[in-house]
């Protein structure tokens, strides 16, 4: 009698449970395959960067390396082959200039659009928004002519190169739009309260709006800096001559442009890894910020 009292699952429930487990196993398996697909290029990059030239030449390729066999020397060789420290410094400088400029210009303009009442505000804003649909390639032609006319290309000094690489990217209609949205969410009453207390517009921006919009501003800083780190086309266009003026992406491609000849793949991959790692570190440190920012902003930095 006592056995009968044990809570037993009905057949239907058992079937449902079984089905659920099977489904979960399938989902996790599929996700693991996708994860392998995503991670493989990184793994191949890291693996190759740690191999010796002889190990590279092995067919079929070696798929695992014991830590003891790691050729960390490749990184030293890669750094010798091209001045990566220099490239990184250049990239950081350009990122800093363009990000700083972008923040200043977009915060000020977004404040005007969000808070100040002026003639033609909505019209001008609409023009800005509609110009977002014009592909950047259309600007590049004239911008190249402009920086050339400004004397930043011929007999290029380091300052010229920095100016040519950063000036066209010191503002952004998209970030302006993004910030204005954030500013608009600050209740009007906060502004009125500040007015009653005799706060100037600029002080209000500095003391109230900017602190409230801090998450958005940080997102913009991260996306903008990431954008510079990955920038290839424009820097390549305006600073082709002097190797010392290159940014990381250009240095990478230009130093190892050949796929057919005798390429030291391990060094090439070491260099690629050197360029990839800082971004991955930043990502892992600011994971939440970046992921939230990206899904909110809806663009690629």
């Amino acid at each position: 009698m006592s056995e009968n009292r044990k809570p037993t699952l009905s057949k239907k429930e058992q079937a449902a449970r079984k089905q659920k487990i099977i489904r979960l196993v399938i989902v996790y398996t599929l996700l693991t395959f996708v994860a392998l697909f995503i991670v493989t290029p990184f793994y191949w990059m890291i693996l190759t960067s740690l191999k010796t030239a002889q190990q590279i030449d092995r067919i079929p390729p070696i798929l695992f390396l014991k830590p003891g066999d790691w050729q960390l020397r490749n990184f030293a060789l890669a750094l010798q082959a091209a001045p990566y420290a220099r490239f990184m410094m250049n990239t950081v400088i350009v990122a800093a200039i363009s990000t700083f400029g972008t923040i200043i210009t977009t915060v000020l303009a977004a404040f005007a659009f969000a808070r100040i009442n002026f003639k033609g505000r909505d019209f001008i804003f609409m023009i800005l928004i509609s110009s977002m649909m014009i592909p950047g390639e259309m600007f590049v032609i004239t911008n190249f002519m402009t920086v050339n006319t400004l004397g930043w290309i011929r007999d290029q000094s380091f300052i010229d190169a920095l100016a040519a690489m950063s000036f066209p990217f010191m503002t952004s209609i998209f970030y302006l739009f993004f910030l204005r949205q954030t500013f608009k969410q600050v209740p009007d009453e906060l502004y009125l309260a500040a007015k009653v207390d005799g706060t100037s517009d600029f002080k209000y921006l500095l003391k109230v709006m900017i602190p409230i919009a801090k998450p958005t501003i940080i997102t913009i800083i991260i996306l903008n800096a990431m954008g510079t780190w990955n920038a290839y086309i424009w820097p390549n266009l305006v600073s082709p001559q002097n190797e010392n003026y290159r940014l990381v992406s250009n240095g990478l491609r230009n130093a190892y442009r050949d796929l057919s000849g005798q390429v030291a793949y391990n060094e090439q991959m070491s260099a690629a890894l050197i360029v990839t790692i800082p971004l991955l570190i930043v990502f892992l440190l600011l994971k939440k910020q970046i992921m939230r920012g990206v899904s909110r902003s809806g663009i690629k930095g």
């Binding site: 209740p187 009453e189 906060l190 009125l192 309260a193 007015k195 009653v196 207390d197 005799g198 706060t199 003391k207 109230v208 602190p211 409230i212 801090k214």
Partner: peptide, 20 residues
């Protein structure tokens, strides 16, 4: 202007600065 009138104003939604 409001700041020179010597008034204190309390808003319906209080308008407290959220970061302070």
């Amino acid at each position: 202007p409001p700041e020179d009138r010597g008034i204190g104003l309390v808003f319906q939604n209080y308008a407290l600065y959220p970061h302070m």
